[in-house]
Simulated assay, not measured.
Amino acid sequence: MLGFFKRDKNKIAKDGEDHTVDSMDLLGEKAETTGKEVKTKLHFPPNVEIGQEERYYYQFLNNELPLLKENQISLSGIEVHSAEDGTVSVKAFLRNSLPKGVRIAEPITLLLLGPDEDVLARQEFNLTGLGELPAESSTPWVYVFNAKNVRVKEIPQTDWKLAFELKKAKGPHTLDLEESWEKSLADTDKEKLEQLVKTIKPPKPGEVNFMGIQSRLDDAGALHVTLLIRNGSEKNVKLEQLPLNVEDASGEVVAKGAFKMEALEIKANTSKPWTFIFPKELVLKEDADLSKWKAYVPQG
């Protein structure tokens, strides 16, 4: 793995910068701090075959690394290489200054940053293959970014940085109004929606669901259904086509339809109201009892 790309044997220096975070921010590992500085010892992952010359190379680079404070995790860039297929390989030390070994069990998102901190590539990595990072250790590894995750045509060979993307603390679930709704809704109606979103239980992490707000049959026999589209994930969700069934108080399906939308976007950790209109020909029951109803995406 470490010999994935060749290095210039006449050059014994690392090209990348360092990115260091507190172990609590990355791993949730809380530990007491005495204020001492840590010199990390070179460590190779299990099942990695490496020659003596390479060992000397990594040992030399490791000796040149700056000291870390206690309880930190750091990425120290060594080399970067762009392949003809568009993939970008980054060789870096992963350093652990905790007084105990740690494992990165959950997938983690890494960023390749340019000289101005602009994001050159972004990808989620599974680092379980590294095994345990021993206490006060420095582990060389190669991180391969797939071509689809690389955002630029040329990767600079100096002044770059491999960095952790730390998860932002999740704030409260909030209301997100489409611009047309923002302009047309009365302030009192906006306040009611905001209060509703605040008081109801938010969707589970990663879940997208629908909550009925209002339904009515108009004079032409069309059924108007207003739903709160609730996004509990950390990513924005775009809806382009949505099949919907509506059941009335008797549990009967009273309307069926498939709605095409111009990429309706529901931002991460927000709820957005939207009205779906079933024309009369899609209404299956004219005398529907809408005193109690629900709308859902049919399975299959």
Rank of each mutant, 00 (worst) to 15 (best):
L98H: 00
K238R: 15
K168Y: 11
L217N: 10
V142D: 00
G171C: 08
H43I: 04
G16P: 12
L112G: 02
I155F: 02
Y56P: 03
F276Y: 15
A268E: 15
P202Q: 01
P243A: 03
E262T: 15
K170T: 15
K294W: 06
L98Q: 09
N63K: 13
A249Q: 14
D287L: 08
G114V: 10
T109C: 09
A31G: 00
W274D: 01
G28L: 09
K168S: 13
Y296I: 13
F278K: 02
L127K: 00
E154D: 13
H43R: 08
Q214G: 03
R103Y: 11
L120G: 03
T226Q: 14
Q123T: 04
V144M: 12
K272W: 00
E132A: 12
P298H: 09
M24A: 11
W181C: 00
L244C: 08
L75Y: 05
T34D: 10
F44K: 05
S233V: 09
G16Y: 03
K256M: 14
M24N: 10
N209P: 07
E49K: 11
D289I: 03
K190S: 03
T33L: 07
G16I: 14
G77V: 15
T188S: 13
F278L: 10
Q52R: 13
G131D: 11
V297Y: 01
S271P: 09
L127M: 06
G114W: 03
L26N: 02
A31Y: 02
T34I: 07
P203W: 12
E154N: 08
K9Y: 12
P140V: 13
E29T: 14
S180K: 05
V208T: 10
G86P: 13
L98C: 06
P107V: 04
P99Q: 02
E194I: 11
L239Q: 08
K100P: 01
R7M: 13
K30M: 12
W274S: 04
G3D: 03
E136A: 11
D187T: 14
R122D: 14
P243W: 13
N149A: 09
R95F: 06
K267I: 04
E132M: 11
P205I: 07
W141T: 15
S180A: 09
K36M: 00
E247I: 15
K41D: 08
L42V: 02
Q195N: 15
R122G: 12
Y143P: 06
A163E: 00
L162T: 04
Q157F: 12
L2T: 10
Q52L: 14
S250W: 06
Y56I: 15
G232L: 04
V48M: 08
G232H: 01
W293L: 11
A268C: 13
N62D: 13
S137A: 05
A295I: 12
G3C: 05
V246W: 04
K14P: 05
V297D: 01
E124F: 05
L185C: 03
G35Y: 04
I277M: 01
L175E: 07
S23Q: 05
G212P: 08
N126C: 10
I229K: 04
S137T: 07
K6P: 06
N236Y: 06
A249S: 09
S23M: 12
Q299P: 05
